[in-house]
Design a protein around this nucleic acid. Sequence first.
DNA 1: ATATACAGTGTAAATATTACACTAAGTAAT
DNA 2: ATTACTTAGTGTAATATTTACACTGTATAT
Lengths: 229, 229
Amino acid sequence: MKELLPHFNSTFSIDCILFGFDEGELKILLIERNEEPFKDWWALPGNLVSENESLDQSASRILHELTGLDNVYMEQFYTFGDVGRHPQGRIISVAYYAMLRLGGDRVLKPVSSYAKQAYWINVNELPKLAFDHQKIFDQGLEKIKRRIKHQPIAFELLPEKFTLTQLQNVYEVILGKKLDKRNFRKKMLSFNVLKDLNEKQKGVSFRAATLYRFDKRKYGKLFGKEISF
Amino acid sequence: MKELLPHFNSTFSIDCILFGFDEGELKILLIERNEEPFKDWWALPGNLVSENESLDQSASRILHELTGLDNVYMEQFYTFGDVGRHPQGRIISVAYYAMLRLGGDRVLKPVSSYAKQAYWINVNELPKLAFDHQKIFDQGLEKIKRRIKHQPIAFELLPEKFTLTQLQNVYEVILGKKLDKRNFRKKMLSFNVLKDLNEKQKGVSFRAATLYRFDKRKYGKLFGKEISF
DNA sequence: ATATACAGTGTAAATATTACACTAAGTAAT
DNA sequence: ATTACTTAGTGTAATATTTACACTGTATAT
């Protein structure tokens, strides 16, 4: 029965949008391609799916090869399959995103053979991208804008200990608008998912703010509840 | 350059969840397969993607072959790619859903060669499904539960002219809970997307209700606004 | 005439959201 | 020590939204 269908031969790929928050800016990881097609172009990290791995496994592998990270939650958000999207044949691409902690212990950037280099680039200053990667990015950004309103994914971009102002900055940079400080704090604390660490920020040249941690035990209470900013 | 990659050979497919609302129940269209694998099993309608069509085009084609319908809005919601999901090889499946009008002029059910028959089946009484189609269905249902809270997709399940009670029934059956009649009406009318047709229901053996139509011109106002039930 | 079945309607209480500005605390420079 | 600077941290009143709740009206069928 197995031979009724042609042998597996990689007609689908994964592309990843890795979001990071650094210096008050939302950034994504881009690679400079070292192979045809689109040699020397900027692109989202991605690769062909291997025969013996699921889509999720493939996404994790690609992330690991690129950053050395494991156990990062990645979420599939759309599959791109227009006829002309890949110049070398019919390849559809399943797109994932992940939110990474850049602050503190900075993510490493081991570079796979197919990339010359990888850089974190501000989402407002993206270069021209290979393939249909601009379209993939646009949709990914829309996705997290919607998702951040309903689920506590903002924490994933911050170091384990963070201040309320940092958290507010994440919301502001993703939503693209300023939020009221008092209202933001009131609402965020009302969700009861932040643990006050009774500890202050260090190394700042002004009044240090209180550090908080996202409290996973209380996450369930929030899940399903509507958050809105 | 084109020859660097193997020739196209259908390693991906589309599966569709077609939702319909009939006799107060939420139903989906299932086919009884007439081909191996899973011959004689119930399955979601689906097919391999052709070389010269995009995923969206493929989804529309499959819907057309099955129902004769065109111009139905279908939305991609997830791609399933576990290694063992298809017994004949590595085939990933891009899943779509659509909401169809069954009431009034009933959707026809022309049957493609690969199916013996197609039936509308209550989502609470589904038989065992082929492949990973139960998983696909579960995720599709979750998707529309979330979506119906934020976008006016409920109208798509009803005939062009409908009563507020019918509309409320759609919400109740998808969300799986009863809603308060007065609050539902107040809120739904406040969105300003319903046009009062100054016309009454016909053929009922009790007081006839007012008919409404979804007003596409006002749709934009609602879009992006948060609805919640 | 009467019974039936659903249509249609309003209000008050509780909750959530918004708008808005000053004082407190730590650091750095003199 | 004083001062200037920078960010932390806090409350209230007005408005809008959500919820809970039950009866009357009207067309049909007998």
